[in-house]
C-alpha cells in the first residue's frame, strides 16, 4: 500500500467519523436550544444510562454487519438472557447472579456459533438463519418465563446498573472493541472478509472461521446487553428485547455501517445510538406526541442511508 492510498483511506475513514459527530453535535445544539432541561447533567446521564443495552446491542449488530451479515435475533437473545438472569440465583448477595451470568454468556456464545455455522457451512442467508433462530429463542424465553417477572438479586443489580458502573462497563467495552477492530489481526480479517470474502479467501484468510468467530463475539456482547438489561429491570421479560433488533440495526446504519459488509466503525455506531436516543429524549421533553418520534426516526434512517450511498457513489 503506497503512502497516498493509505492517506486517502485514512481520510475517508475520518470523514465518516467527522460527519456523524458533526451531526451529533448539531443535534445537541438544536436540542439545547429547544428545551432548557436538555443540557442538564441529569438528562444527559439519563440519555446514556437508559440506553446501555441498546448501545451494546448496536455494537453486536455492527460487528455482524461488518462481516457481511445481519442479526435479526439480537432482541430475542437479549430477552432470553433476561429470563435466564431472572430465574437463576434470584436471591442473595451479588455473587448469586454469577451462575446466571455465566450461563447467559455460554448460551449466547453457543447461539452465535450456531448462527455462524448455519450461515457458513449450510449456506443459509444471514437474514433467514437469524430470523429462524430468533423465533426458536422467543419460544424458549416464553417457556422459561411466560410473563415478565422473576427476580434479579438486588445486591447485584443495584450496584451493577448504577450510573458509574454503566459508564465503566461502556468505556471498557468500547476500548476493547475499538482496539480489536483497529489494531489486531482479527479486526483486519473482519474488515477483509466483510469487504470481499473472495479476495480475503485468496489472501489465505479462513473466511468461515472469521465469520463464526464474529458471531460468537457478537454473542458475548448480546449476553452483556442482556445482563445489563436484566439488572436495570431487576427482572426478566420474555419480549423486552424485541425492539432492540431493529433499533440496533438502525443505529448501526445511522453510524454508516454498510449492509454490503466491510464498512462501519464502532465509534460511528456509538454516535448513531446517541443520536437515536437524543431524538426520543428531546421529543419527550418537548411533549411532542410519540407518533412524531417514529417520523423523526424514519427520516433519520433515510437520511443516514442516503448520505452513505451518496458517499459511496
Amino acid at each position: 500500500m503506497t503512502f497516498k492510498v493509505r492517506f486517502v483511506n485514512h481520510y475517508k475513514r475520518r470523514r465518516d467519523i467527522y460527519n456523524i459527530y458533526a451531526l451529533l453535535l448539531l443535534f445537541v445544539i438544536i436540542s439545547s436550544i429547544l428545551d432548557k432541561d436538555f443540557l442538564t447533567l441529569r438528562n444527559l446521564t439519563n440519555i446514556f444510562t437508559t440506553n446501555v443495552p441498546f448501545l451494546i446491542a448496536a455494537y453486536a449488530q455492527t460487528i455482524v454487519i461488518l462481516i457481511g451479515g445481519v442479526d435479526l435475533s439480537i432482541g430475542a437473545c437479549i430477552s432470553l438472557v433476561t429470563c435466564i438472569m431472572a430465574t437463576i440465583g434470584t436471591e442473595g448477595g451479588w455473587w448469586s447472579a454469577m451462575p446466571g451470568i455465566f450461563i447467559s454468556f455460554l448460551v449466547c456464545a453457543v447461539l452465535g456459533f450456531m448462527k455462524g455455522i448455519l450461515i457458513t457451512k449450510f449456506g443459509i442467508q444471514a437474514l433467514i438463519a437469524t430470523l429462524s433462530i430468533s423465533l426458536i429463542i422467543g419460544g424458549f424465553s416464553l417457556a422459561i418465563l411466560d410473563k415478565p417477572g422473576g427476580n434479579v438479586s438486588k445486591e447485584f443489580s443495584k450496584p451493577f446498573s448504577s450510573d458509574i458502573s454503566l459508564f465503566i462497563i461502556c468505556t471498557i467495552i468500547f476500548i476493547l472493541i475499538w482496539f480489536m477492530l483497529n489494531y489486531t489481526k482479527f479486526g483486519k480479517y473482519i474488515y477483509a472478509v466483510g469487504g470481499n470474502s473472495l479476495s480475503a479467501y485468496s489472501a489465505g484468510i479462513n473466511v468461515d472461521v472469521v465469520k463464526i468467530s464474529g458471531f460468537i463475539l457478537s454473542g458475548f456482547l448480546i449476553a452483556l446487553a442482556g445482563v445489563v438489561s436484566a439488572a436495570s429491570m431487576r427482572s426478566g421479560d420474555p419480549t423486552s428485547g424485541e425492539p432492540l433488533t431493529l433499533k440496533s440495526l438502525t443505529a448501526s446504519i445511522i453510524g454508516g455501517a454498510s449492509f454490503s459488509g466491510g464498512k462501519g466503525y464502532i465509534e460511528c455506531t456509538f454516535a448513531g445510538v446517541i443520536i437515536f436516543a437524543i431524538i426520543n429524549n428531546i421529543l419527550n421533553l418537548l411533549g411532542v406526541s410519540t407518533f412524531y418520534q417514529y417520523i423523526a426516526q424514519g427520516l433519520l434512517l433515510i437520511f443516514a442511508i442516503a448520505i452513505t450511498s451518496i458517499q459511496d457513489k
Partner: peptide, 13 residues
Amino acid sequence: DGDANKQISDFKD
C-alpha cells in the same frame, strides 16, 4: 410502543 427499555427512559424524561 411496548418497549420496556424505552419506557424506562420515557419515565426518566
